[in-house]
Design a protein around this nucleic acid. Sequence first.
RNA 1: GGGCAGGUAGCUCAGCUGGGAGAGCAUCGCCCUUACAAGGCGAGGGUCGGGGGUUCGAACCCCUCCCUGCCCACCA
Length: 958
Amino acid sequence: MSLDTTMEKTYQPHEIERSWYKNWEEKNYFAPSGKGTSYTIMIPPPNVTGSLHMGHAFQQSIMDALTRYRRMQGYNSLWQVGTDHAGIATQMVVERKLAAEESKSRHDLGRDAFIEKVWEWKEQSGNTITRQMRRLGNSVDWETERFTMDEGFYNAVQEVFIRLHDDGLIYRGKRLVNWDPKLHTAISDLEVESTEEQGSLWHFRYPLVDGAKTLDGSDFIVVATTRPETMLGDTAVAVNPKDERYQHLVGQYVELPVVGRRIPIVADDYVDREFGTGCVKITPAHDFNDYDVGKRHQLPLINVMTINANIREHAEVFNLDGTVNTTVTNVIPEQYHGLDRFSARKKIVKEFDNLGFLEKIEPHTLKTPRGDRSGEVIEPLLTDQWFVKIKPLAEPAIKAVEDGDIQFVPKQYENMYFSWMRDIQDWCISRQLWWGHRIPAWYDNNGNVYVGRSEEEVRSKYKLAADLALSQDNDVLDTWFSSALWTFGTLGWPENTARLQTFHPTDVLVTGFDIIFFWVARMIMMTMYFMKDEQGNPQAPFKTVYVTGLIRDENGQKMSKTKGNVLDPLDMIDGISLKDLLNKRTGNMMQPQLAARIKQSTQTQFPEGIAAHGTDALRYTLFSLASTGRDINWDMKRLEGYRNFCNKLWNAARYVLMNTEGQDCRQNGGEVDYSLADRWIVSKLQHTEKAVCDAIESYRFDLASQALYEFIWNEYCDWYLELSKPVLWDENATEEQLRGTRYTLVRVLEAILRLAHPFMPFITEEIWQQVRSLAGKEGDTIMLQPYPACDPNNIDEAAVAELEWVKGIVVAIRTIRSEMNIKPSAEISVLLNNATELDTKRLGSNYTFLKRLAKLADIQTLPTGSKAPDMVATKLVGDLEVLVNMTDLVDKTAEIARLQKEIDKLSKEQTRLNNKLTNDNFISKAPAVVVEKEQNKLKEVENALQKFAEQLSKMQQL
RNA sequence: GGGCAGGUAGCUCAGCUGGGAGAGCAUCGCCCUUACAAGGCGAGGGUCGGGGGUUCGAACCCCUCCCUGCCCACCA
């Protein structure tokens, strides 16, 4: 063996990873080959100004493994990369920066200058995430990188908007929408999160007029509300039509206190008789349910709030069709003007109290709607917005999943998809932001709307006079509107490009369950509307949606900045000092008061900071934890374990190189004489190849990584490398034997590298480069080598059985050694009793293996008729008795205890089997094979028991 | 209120269409054996959330309850 290999003693990932990625990218290996069947994955575009978190690392590792796997299998593989402009999120970041650095708001700059700032920020920070993606080893096609606001996407977005509008599927109207008073924009239903909060239920008296009385003679009715301030906009009180208490009052009026407006009492099924008082104040302009009630009863809409959710000086009054209502008074008492919602609430409650109209206040838990970005309480507000009429788009999208054209993995997410899609509401797509795709619509001074690509096109399309003044809509589109076009927009649509024809529809979408509605569903709808196959049928954007779980911290908590438990994937790759980690976790916090606790928990958990583990270890950990659909509780110990695994593979390669470099590994052919171990490991490799491929095809990356791990560590390293030593170090070995073992060592290692490459791209490439020529392979990179496939012809079941026999004996002897406290250095002799002809034959051909692996002075069969020595320790391998000679090492008590333990275990098993086999029902009803199996087991157990019992009594007599 | 997922060793999780439970880490021994101490060899540890049912046989199928997490929904 030569020790002059160039490999370091431990695996040092950092430099290797950097240089290989650079090499791959420069050589353009990530680009589709242009040959073979196409395979496409579209990356979920991360926020352009964002940075990589564990969720990205997880999903991208999976996409990379799939892409590398298919690429190696010869598919024309495209992993499309790109980033998202992320409207609200990006705009907020830049606004915050602007406020912090220049104490300016976006309004101080004005729209054009602000947008320019965002572009600057995008240029400046936009490559953070792409740089991080390179560190992960992602084999994305960088040459065709896209951005959701690049020129091509701009065209696609306009085209989609205009066509949907012209097809009657986009409309504009004054509607009640979810309004974020902090961000000053409408948001969609999906961007509203409801949280359970403690509030009150206020009971207000509304005086009846025209002499009306309740059944018990009161001249007022009592309404219950959680939002007193909206009473300024009440336009009715509703009761249930079946409610005997109030039936007679339907059609009567109350006079709204504070405001003095006469409003009707109406009957509506919406009202629950059991809740509150059974009387509900109706405020159609500030509550979604009330809006619907208002529609049914032709009530006017009175908006009492500004876009800041402050009380207006004059209410805006509208009819249901959005026209201005001039008959209802718009007066709001002066003392409320300009108050925010919550101050107004207090003041109104106080006023009711003063008037004697406050019946009572009950504590009440309610669901408060909050904006997912701002955290602000959302206010239903009447505004002019653009909507997509979604039902016609949803129908084919539902059918595609029903028919199995699109499959979710795991399947249970289909239910989630269906339940949302079947009850889908029109999609509000306009946002009152500046950063995004501006809506391609123009208005004249009379409020007429013209939709088109440009002012010029609009003028000609609608045949407008040249002097008609037009101005473009100020709003931008919901970010998800453009990302919904991702699968085809990135491929050149609306042009019918070659890329579009080759790579669409795509194969699999890998994403988190949290954006199934936001993105996946909308992508399916949009794609199916715009993309058609040759027969004109709608095309699905992808065949499979692989839904990943969330990565949580070791306690199952969601990782978040405020909890201070965020782990940066790059820190696990490159390592980070405690000091830097603390800075990262406590610096720039929105709630600085949390810093102390975060500091403490971080110090406890990472007293030394985080060590560098390398990309491959990180990736392998992610794969091993990726059982479908489950959230992952991150475990640093697992990461360490897989770092060790990388090192194991590295050292196995070192061993192989030490023993093969400069030697004949049959690169040029030649006769070979394969050892049992050679034939065994090649057979095991076939099984592993099948297991790994099957697991990848079914998206079970945990099973794939486990099969690979077990093969490499427990079979190749633990047994095969050890078994190769007696051959390689045997002075009497023939050239054919040496060649056979070296050949097998190298070839199996080379296959392992290819098999593992999709999971651990860097270490496999590095080692592969060194074994390539020894393994007789051509090619510049492992990336483009064929993926190993199981060949049943290479499976030698007889060799597998025989090697299992060898392992059985070796393990039996090791166990005796350990339990009898025999020094590892002591060479012992072993006898095999009760040996069959086959045992004897196997012993003959595996003598040197056994001697070396069990560290024996000698091993032989006990000749028939001769008596075994008295002082032996016994173990059974099937019917074969393994006897370790203890004459010089006697510890009678230990052996008696050991035998007793064996007997106890066997007795239990015997009882169990006996019970089963004396049960007539079992004998008569269980399948014959099962009965036979159990009978054989019992025979074996009884046999073993007898032998141990004999041995025990012998020992006791000594 | 409706729906989904999960509860298996101290921890994190596997367990394919029912035939007495596995891995990694942790723990406990023994070893610096010439690829690897980021290692080697061996050992201990589980009433598979509770209860009931189907079955010769249940971690797995059915019913029921308990706990955890998530999604959806208008109770003012």
